[in-house]
Write a protein that binds this DNA or RNA. Structure first.
Lengths: 124, 124
DNA sequence: CATATTGGTTACTTTTTGGTTAGTAGTTAC
DNA sequence: GTAACTACTAACCAAAAAGTAACCAATATG
């Protein structure tokens, strides 16, 4: 809601601007899997994240969908893909510095989800 | 990532828990329109938000979709629907206190979108 | 030789999502 | 009486997203 001007002044982004910005975000980060994948890779930034391992640990994602989602994320410079010279060949995916800027988004979503579940359980 | 225990202790939610929490959030808030609608209603919490007005100001949404989305949000106690005794009858939608808890989510998405657009423009 | 693993791709089907058009009911304005 | 506004809903359709299953090449294991 607060934006820094080209003049260095803080001002509110207009409502229209805000909704457009959110559309941009949702276009890149929206859908069932992208934020989950980014969160997963952020939590495991220090590890080697191979395709199959990711597929096993993000429950329910198919190879086809994971492959496509990773490609999209790579196109938007949020993750990197590195083929490793092992036998059999493995491919490591890692979050980029830019990908890490999505962390505040997933943080709020995790917080909200945890709180929502708590609320649901309380009201039973 | 940080969660308060039933014991009052802070601890990390496990990665699995985190992803599940995010799935819960995305199930309720995901899709093309829900967060936009919530943001819109939050920004106009002090106004009377009639159906047609919302439809005109959230560009591109059809009556059918808006109607369905508002119903979903109402079911999840995020917005209220009030029929007003005007002629012609109008219906006012408003964000609830619980709906306002989604604000951190839309804030981060707006911020990220604004920043992303800036980045795209810079790299041209 | 048979089987398993890695990192996918391809073809096909289903499900979900969203958009279009038309129509309804009540009321008001011309 | 006719048009217009509000708040929808129903029928229909198209496109996108996602799921399923099979398959591939390379290598390793038993």
């Amino acid at each position: 809601m607060i934006k820094t001007d080209k003049n260095g002044l803080k001002r509110e982004a207009s409502c229209g601007e805000e909704l457009l910005a959110m559309r941009d975000s949702l276009e890149i980060l929206g859908g069932k899997w992208k934020l989950q994948i980014l969160r997963y890779l952020t939590n495991r930034a220090h590890q080697t994240n191979q395709f199959k391992k990711i597929q096993r640990e993000i429950e329910g994602i198919s190879a086809k969908v994971l492959s496509k989602e990773l490609k999209d994320l790579e196109d938007n410079l949020l993750v990197t893909r590195t083929v490793q010279d092992t036998r059999p060949i493995t491919v490591a995916y890692a979050i980029t510095a830019y990908g890490r800027t999505v962390l505040p988004v997933t943080n709020t979503l995790v917080e909200w989800g945890l709180n929502h579940r708590k609320k649901i359980i309380e009201n039973r």
